[in-house]
Design a binder for these strands. Structure first.
Lengths: 138, 138
DNA sequence: CGCCCACCTTGGACCGGGTCCAAGGTGGGC
DNA sequence: GCCCACCTTGGACCCGGTCCAAGGTGGGCG
């Protein structure tokens, strides 16, 4: 994702200060930030960026396939910049910490035809839930 | 789930007309209703039942383990009365239809220790997404 | 190099699902 | 049959997210 900006420009994305800042925030640590957290970090560099623009930009990055939306709880969506390697998520039921994980095997092969009800399945999401070491210690 | 009412009474649940109606709505067809849909069906039998009571009752049924909350999209939570047989969900990406499915194998065994980051994992949710036959035909 | 317009940004209103609260009602043990 | 702990109610409120009309600007073209 490091040359994200080039790729976007190459796809005809008009480059603006706001979009650059949002892309750079995501490109930093590989975290799972909420839109509000992205907004806060972006605003630290570009104070008057609006919430609406952050939402717009995140939405575009998602539809360009550069960022993944993850909805592991019913609070805010989170944005995962690790869009180029397939993975699943491990979530702490207590503090909400999220880690990317890479299960072996293909979960799709666990679903027999008789359990597919004629659906054309395109995608499988797996969420592992448990208690993280920090919360277990506390 | 057919003697749900007995079980609840046995657990010291005070029986009221509202709770009975909500439990009966869920006990009917094994569907995945939203709270508003439960409210609508309950109100058909008990016209002045309030939204708040439906939410309270659903919340209690969930914490008693009699009903499962399923959050397959970011719209309303759905309530799954099939709490006594473990299963996963198959969701139509277009119309939102949901089916219970029973994959073979244990998805937990696909996650090597090195990918568990010290978490104590208690639960795995799998959501299969695709297009249902009806939407494919249209 | 500068113009110009298609596209972008903005703040604020609005939306929908859900939660909270204080006041009034009622199941069911005694 | 009484009484109170527990339940229900409607309405206010919360929060994440979306929409909109008005104003700003990147960057292709001459």
């Amino acid at each position: 994702m490091s040359d994200l900006l080039e790729r976007l420009r190459g796809r005809g994305w008009r480059m603006t200060a706001q979009r650059r800042v949002v892309a750079e925030v995501l490109d930093g640590d590989h975290m799972h930030l909420t839109a509000d957290e992205v907004h806060a970090r972006a605003a630290a560099r570009l104070p008057e960026i609006s919430r609406a623009t952050v939402y717009n930009t995140l939405g575009e990055l998602v539809s360009l396939g550069e960022v993944l939306e993850v909805a592991t709880d019913r609070r805010a969506k989170r944005y995962d910049p690790n869009a180029h390697r397939p993975h699943q998520h491990l979530v702490c039921a207590q503090c909400g910490a999220i880690r990317d994980v890479h299960p072996t095997g293909n979960p799709l092969s666990d679903l027999p035809d008789s359990e597919r009800f004629g659906f054309t399945i395109s995608n499988v999401e797996v969420t592992y839930r448990g208690i993280c070491p920090d919360c277990a210690a506390a």
